[in-house]
Write a protein that binds this DNA or RNA. Structure first.
Lengths: 208, 208
DNA sequence: TCAAAGATTGACCAATGGGACAATTCTTGA
DNA sequence: TCAAGAATTGTCCCATTGGTCAATCTTTGA
């Protein structure tokens, strides 16, 4: 590790973002009061507003961090992928990383997404998420099919991912990770040309 | 029309449910205050609590009504469908009925769904919605493919519908109705046996 | 060593919102 | 016609919450 030690500001900010996200899971946006966030982080309310201008900024940062987690989960896998198929698998597997694909986390995302129509800051993050996923998918699909077909396939894949996440957040109809991946590949394998189902490209097995 | 005239209670209840849903679109759950709902309906706050026990019940009823709208949109089309394919088309078209498939309405659904984890009443409605859609799809798909394939296809279709709705509620990545239907049938036609794409089964044209 | 900068707390404030209620107006049926 | 019941309003109350601030305690660098 090169450079200085982590500054206290960064430690506190991280702790509070994390606390905010966790309270959000249980309480929703309205119920996630500054006092509860502070308590959950083991601090006083004042400290929260010492490190964040206001409630909006706190939860904006919380969303940023959650997004970064998902982004990294995909990026790791993308780095090891060699074929276009592998890159698609990377996007899918990353979005269903068992560390993040959990009902409680989906609850928090749901709470955040519900604020998007009224919080331009959150809307921007959401836009980035969509754009990134679309771009990742397109870069792989363009090599496998004509432009228009690629675009549609990308929309279908990302729409499906969103739908499965949404359902995972609502109690009923939520499918566990294993089945979600089965469904995704059931769909994908039929759409990609020169089907080689079971070619070992998509690895549903253990995580590092 | 047989029977008595509509009772005032029912009129008021309906007006207030509708007002609640419309305020929800703009303001989200926390912002949808009883006073705003009352004002939007042209009444005073007191009247809202005269017809509904409390805020929870009001929005539970609002969700019930929105659900009934969607249910009817599907049911109408289902009544005219003759083939299994037609029944699937009915479910799809109903869920993208242009009267309801609108960003503002998706905003309200998003706000409602975000409360599901903490409101058992809302969770129950959500469960009914999922169960109904799954059942409708299965009844058609069972005739077209083996049980397990039918189950997966049903999950994929309903997941896709949810995903497209979700995206329609978030500003970015939302696809308009026409394209949503194109995507849905692009997906469905490839999965159903004995493909007859363009057999006129799915009607994307005008509403009655 | 010690003073300045930063961290942390708790008290305080103004605004807001859900809900209870008494008072008033309107309907209606005998 | 008129009294009982329903509809409607406005007021009041209390709890909660985001945010401010002055007062302490800690750290640190010169």
């Amino acid at each position: 590790m090169a450079g200085k030690l982590t500054k206290l500001v960064d430690i506190r900010r991280r702790e509070l973002r994390q606390a905010a996200f966790e309270v959000l899971q249980r309480e929703g946006m309205a119920g996630a009061t500054l006092e509860k966030v502070a308590a959950h982080a083991g601090a006083s309310k004042g400290i929260v507003l010492h490190y964040f201008r206001n409630k909006q900024e706190l939860f904006e940062q919380a969303m940023r961090e959650a997004n970064a987690n998902l982004r990294d989960a995909v990026a790791e896998r993308l780095r090891q992928a060699k074929t276009p198929r592998g890159r698609i698998a990377a996007v899918v597997e990353g979005n269903f990383d068992p560390r993040f694909y959990q009902p409680e986390i989906a609850h928090a995302w749901l709470a955040l997404c519900a604020e998007v129509p009224r919080e331009p800051q959150l809307a921007r993050i959401q836009a980035v998420i969509h754009a990134r996923m679309h771009s990742n998918l397109m870069s792989a699909l363009r090599e496998l099919m004509p432009a228009e077909a690629a675009r549609r396939t990308a929309l279908l894949i990302s729409g499906l991912i969103d739908g499965l996440w949404l359902r995972h957040g609502l109690q009923s109809g939520g499918v566990p990770r294993e089945e979600a991946l089965t469904l995704m590949y059931d769909f994908i394998d039929r759409r990609l040309p020169a089907d080689q189902p079971g070619d070992g490209v998509h690895d549903q097995s253990a995580e590092p």
